[in-house]
C-alpha cells in the first residue's frame, strides 16, 4: 500500500505526457465535417463565365472535386498552382471532374484572379450570396470536397490542397483496391 501512491502518481504523470504526445500532431483547425458519408447538397448555380447554369447532379457517375474559393482569399492564391496542375494531370480521366465554387465574391474580382494566375479550365459556379457555401458547411477558404459518383461527400479538405494531395488522399478513396496492390 505504501508504494501504491507512488505508482499511481508516476502513472498519472506518464499518462498525461503520453496524451500530449499523441495529441501533438492534431491541428485544432481541422474539424471533421458532419457531411462526410452524407449525400452532398445539390445545387444549380449560375456560371462565373456567363455560360449555362451548373448543376451538381449533372456530374453524377463521376467523382467530383468541389473547390470553394474567392479572389479575396490569400491561401487560394497559394493553392492555385496546384489546382492548375491537377486539372492538367487529370484532364484525361473519365471518372473524375473538377468544379470550382467562387463564393462571397464579385464577377470582376474572380475573373481578374483567373486571368492573373491562370484559368485551370474546369467549370466555375458563382455564389455571391454564399448560399451553396452555407449549405455545404464551408467556414473558410479554400475548402475542398470530394464527392463520389453516387453524390455522397467522401472527404473534406480544410485549407489549401498540397502537392501530392490527389495521389495521397483522393486516389485511395477513389480506388480502394489501389492500396492493397
Amino acid at each position: 500500500m505504501e508504494y501504491l501512491w507512488k505508482i499511481v502518481l508516476l502513472a498519472a504523470v506518464l499518462f498525461i505526457l503520453g496524451l500530449f504526445a499523441s495529441g501533438l500532431g492534431n491541428d485544432s483547425r481541422n474539424i471533421p465535417s458532419p457531411l462526410i458519408g452524407r449525400p452532398a447538397s445539390v445545387f444549380h448555380a449560375p456560371a462565373l463565365d456567363d455560360g449555362p447554369e451548373i448543376s451538381l447532379e449533372s456530374f453524377r457517375g463521376r467523382w467530383v472535386l468541389v473547390n470553394f474559393w474567392g479572389s479575396w482569399c490569400v491561401s487560394c492564391r497559394h493553392e492555385h498552382p496546384y489546382l492548375l496542375q491537377l486539372a492538367k494531370n487529370t484532364a484525361k480521366r473519365s471518372d473524375f471532374v473538377m468544379l470550382g465554387v467562387d463564393f462571397k465574391d464579385t464577377r470582376e474580382g474572380a475573373k481578374g484572379f483567373l486571368q492573373a494566375l491562370g484559368d485551370p479550365g474546369y467549370r466555375q459556379a458563382f455564389d455571391p450570396d454564399q448560399t451553396i457555401a452555407i449549405d455545404w458547411g464551408v467556414y473558410g477558404a479554400p475548402e475542398t470536397y470530394l464527392v463520389d459518383p453516387q453524390g455522397v461527400v467522401r472527404y473534406k479538405q480544410v485549407g489549401p490542397l498540397f502537392n501530392g494531395w490527389f495521389e495521397k488522399i483522393a486516389l485511395p478513396l477513389m480506388e480502394p483496391k489501389h492500396e492493397n496492390r
Binding site: F20, G23, L24, G25, N26, D27, S28, R29
Partner: peptide, 21 residues
C-alpha cells in the same frame, strides 16, 4: 503547442510541440 483547440488558437504552433513535450 496547439495540442488543445481553443479561442487562443491564434497562438498555436504544433512545430515546436515536440521539443516542448
Amino acid at each position: 503547442s496547439g495540442v488543445l483547440s481553443s479561442v487562443h488558437a491564434f497562438a498555436s504552433d504544433p512545430g515546436r510541440g515536440v521539443y516542448i513535450l
